[in-house]
């Protein structure tokens, strides 16, 4: 079963000086196929939770289990390997590799996975078409708009066929049109291919499209609600 289970996640920054509790006992379960938004005001712990779920950060206490594997005790390199196979990331600032073209950025993680060339080519083409950038494959990030870069980032996150896509404020730097466009693509991939998306966001446009909205306040889950998305 592909799911994410967190148990009693607590994250305290600066424990030895001025402790800041970012997360305070978060218990959560996210199933495959969800389109979930983690929301809350700034400093509520959204990004910290997403980072811990994605294995980019370690909790002070508690555990994260992804598809049956507890990742909180993994060593760094093992965690990198795990992320490569199971988790795709979409960052607020896109974080594409500036010296590679859109196509090469998408292909990159598949190369790390040692996928065969033909498979890489086919999937890269499919994904760039899916995000509407089939004609930009040889363009470098600097020549793409913010919305286009974020779509490349989504294609890159999807390329290794991860179990989950974790997106940290993916629309924060985008205009309305680009946001709508990106959300349409992600919603379609979720609906048609069953890809799980977990967002941290305080963008109402994203929240409106989510099937499940988890609200964090002061590092704790305040509400966890299912909703019918607007589209």
């Amino acid at each position: 079963m592909k799911n994410i289970i967190t148990k009693g996640i607590t994250k305290v920054y600066n424990p030895d000086t001025i402790p800041v509790v970012a997360l305070d006992g978060v218990d959560l379960e996210i199933e495959q196929g969800e389109f979930t938004a983690i929301v809350g005001p700034s400093g509520s712990g959204k990004t910290t939770l997403l980072n811990i779920i994605g294995g980019l950060d370690k909790p002070s206490h508690g555990s994260v289990t992804i598809s049956g594997t507890e990742i909180t005790k993994m060593r760094d390199n093992k965690l990198i390997e795990f992320r490569k196979e199971h988790i795709g990331f979409v960052f607020q600032a896109y974080n594409l590799i500036p010296v590679l073209t859109a196509e090469e950025n998408v292909e990159f993680v598949m190369l790390l996975q040692n996928r065969p060339s033909a498979e890489r080519d086919q999937r890269t083409t499919e994904l760039l078409e899916a995000v509407g950038l089939g004609d930009k494959r040889n363009t470098r990030p600097a020549q793409l708009s913010g919305g286009q870069q974020q779509r490349v980032a989504v294609a890159r996150a999807l390329a290794p066929k991860p179990d989950f896509i974790l997106a940290d404020e993916p629309t924060a730097n985008l205009d309305s049109k680009s946001t709508e466009n990106l959300l349409d693509i992600m919603a379609r991939l979720n609906h048609e291919e069953g890809i799980t998306f977990v967002f941290s966001t305080h963008d109402q446009r994203v929240i409106d499209r989510a099937h499940r909205v988890i609200t964090l306040v002061d590092g704790k889950i305040a509400t966890d609600e299912l909703q019918n998305p607007e589209k």
């Binding site: 795709g88 990331f89 960052f91 600032a93 590799i97 790390l112 290794p160």
Partner: peptide
Amino acid sequence: IKELGMLMAVGMNKAR
């Protein structure tokens, strides 16, 4: 730094 962090986040191991 940010880019290197991203590379490790998406699965590029330390040796690479």
